[in-house]
Simulated scan of single mutants.
Amino acid sequence: MSRYELKPRPGNGVIKAVIGWDRPLQSFFAQVFTPTEDEPDEGEATIWLGTEPGELPTPEAAIRVVEAYADIPETLAASLAADRHATIGMVDGVHQTRAKLSLFGTRS
């Protein structure tokens, strides 16, 4: 799994945006955090995509989710693609397989 924290754009109420690759789900993920009264510095993920198998299949799909809220480094899509490429051939362990069966009713 990879995870990149992105610098939020000013003026949109966002305190953090995160993007990355989740190998067990075979999906990129994107999160946008806004402050809450209880956690003004950490906030909560008010946008969170990539929690279902294959939901965000490309780096560009994940970037589109966060690009309105955060600055996107020029190299981010290539870094995300490299993260995915580095996991080719990896298989789920016993616990990941059981979790997928429980959550999604599938092994893949």
Results as ranks from 00 to 15, higher is better:
Met1Thr: 14
Met1Val: 09
Met1Leu: 13
Ser2Val: 00
Ser2Glu: 06
Arg3Ser: 15
Tyr4Glu: 10
Glu5Phe: 12
Leu6Glu: 01
Leu6Val: 05
Gly13Phe: 03
Val14Phe: 07
Ile15Ala: 08
Ile15His: 13
Ala17Arg: 03
Val18Leu: 02
Ile19Ala: 06
Gly20Met: 01
Leu25Gln: 04
Phe28Met: 09
Phe29Thr: 04
Val32Lys: 06
Val32Asn: 04
Val32Glu: 10
Thr34Arg: 13
Pro35Arg: 04
Pro35Lys: 07
Thr36Asn: 11
Thr36His: 05
Asp38Ser: 14
Glu44Met: 14
Thr46Glu: 12
Ile47Phe: 02
Trp48Gln: 07
Thr51Asn: 13
Pro53Ile: 03
Thr58Arg: 01
Pro59Lys: 01
Ala62Tyr: 00
Ile63Cys: 06
Glu67Asn: 09
Ala68Asn: 13
Ala68Pro: 14
Ala70Arg: 10
Asp71Ile: 09
Ile72Asp: 14
Ile72Met: 02
Ala77Asn: 01
Ala78Gln: 14
Ser79Thr: 13
Ser79His: 14
Ala82Asn: 12
Ala82Cys: 05
His85Met: 08
His85Trp: 05
Ile88Val: 10
Gly89Ala: 11
Asp92Asn: 15
Gly93Arg: 03
Val94Ile: 14
His95Glu: 11
Gln96Glu: 12
Thr97Asp: 09
Thr97Ile: 10
Ala99Val: 09
Lys100Ala: 01
Leu101Pro: 03
Leu103His: 13
Arg107Ala: 15
